[in-house]
Each structure stands twice: as C-alpha cells, then as structure tokens.
Amino acid sequence: MTAPALSLTVYGTPGPQGSKTRNAAGAMYESSAKVKPWREAVKTAALDALHHDDGWTALACPVWLELQFTLARPKHHFGTGRNAGRLKPSAPHFPTSKPDLDKLVRSTQDALKDAGVLADDSAVAHLSASKTYVLWGDALRTPGAVIKVWRLNDLHKEPTP
C-alpha cells in the first residue's frame, strides 16, 4: 500500500465540536472548552509536519482520512485503596460515552483545513475513525490522536498484485 501523504501524532485531550450554546446576549459559542485547545494542537502538529515539505498544497483531491483517538480513562474505572491504579474488572474495554466520535472527527477535520492539509473537509471521500483508551491495544500512552491522510488518486494508480 502507498505511504500516507501525511502522518502525524497529536498529543492532548481530543475535543468535540458541534454542540453550541447561546449566552445571555444571544451570541453562539462552543459548549466544549476542550475544542479550541484540541484544534490548536492538531493545527500545530500538522504545520510542524508540513514545515519540511515546501511543495505541499492543501489537498483538494479525494482523500482517505484515518483518525485514531486515544482518550484518558475516567477515574471511576480504577480501584481505590490498595487497588488504586488498578483497572476494575468491570471497566469497559471501549469508550462508549462522550465525547461522540463524529464530533471528534468534525473538530479534527476543521483543524486540518485550518492548517492547510485539506482545501476543504468535503475532500474526505473515505473516513476511518476510532476511539480507544490510553494503553489499550496499539493506543497512545497519553491522550491524543494518530492522523493519516492518503490521496485516493495515488491509491488507484498502484499496480494490482
């Protein structure tokens, strides 16, 4: 398989985007305080990765976007007292609570657009996204995300075996 056009790891707490709230004056703002720092972390990581590629232009061609989000486990998943730091047997294997995966995708795509990775998030023709807990399987050791972007046009040019 062709190598991704861009591959990067972003560290920080993934923040969902999408839910809006109105203040007393009627202005709209993001409900999640985590979305702005997350978008900045993604944008910074992408700009750092692109800094070494002078010929990079924002992708307008169809792309495949792969996002693997790693979330911190809630404190109630761990024991207390002599079991402090140990995962409870009842702790779920997969994160099925908030943040919603689609809202994590939305904030990350917007940050990739802001960084100049994507000309527009409508260029994403194929999406693979997952969320997992820290240190579960091949997850990161701290909260964040692994982001990979492929040009679908390049994948279709590959000779078939």
Results as ranks from 00 to 15, higher is better:
Thr2Pro: 13
Pro4Ser: 07
Ala5His: 01
Leu6Asn: 08
Ser7Cys: 08
Leu8Pro: 09
Val10Tyr: 04
Val10Leu: 08
Val10Pro: 09
Gly12Tyr: 04
Pro14Ser: 08
Pro16His: 03
Gln17Arg: 15
Thr21Ser: 11
Thr21Trp: 12
Arg22Ile: 05
Ala25Lys: 13
Gly26Ile: 00
Met28Cys: 06
Tyr29Ala: 09
Glu30Asp: 12
Ser31Tyr: 05
Ala33Lys: 07
Lys36Ala: 09
Ala41Val: 00
Lys43Tyr: 00
Lys43Asp: 09
Lys43Glu: 09
Thr44Glu: 10
Thr44Ala: 13
Ala49Ser: 15
Ala49Ile: 08
His51Asp: 14
Asp54Met: 04
Gly55Ala: 14
Thr57Gly: 05
Ala58Gln: 01
Leu59Arg: 05
Ala60Phe: 00
Cys61Tyr: 08
Pro62Gln: 09
Leu67Phe: 08
Lys75Cys: 04
His76Asn: 12
Gly79Glu: 03
Thr80Tyr: 06
Gly81Arg: 00
Ala84Asp: 06
Lys88Arg: 15
Pro89Trp: 13
Ala91Trp: 05
Ala91Gln: 05
Ser97Trp: 11
Lys98Met: 07
Asp100Glu: 14
Leu104Val: 07
Thr108His: 06
Asp110Met: 04
Asp110Val: 03
Leu112Met: 09
Asp114Val: 07
Asp114Glu: 15
Leu118Ser: 09
Leu118Met: 00
Asp120Asn: 13
Ser128Thr: 08
Ser130Met: 05
Val134Met: 02
Val134Ala: 03
Leu135Asp: 15
Leu135Phe: 09
Gly137Thr: 02
Ala139Asp: 03
Thr142Phe: 07
Gly144Arg: 01
Ala145Glu: 03
Val146Asn: 05
Val146Thr: 04
Val146Pro: 01
Lys148Ser: 07
Val149Asn: 02
Val149Ile: 11
Arg151Leu: 02
Leu152His: 02
Asn153Cys: 13
His156Leu: 13
Lys157Arg: 12
Lys157Ala: 15
Glu158Pro: 00
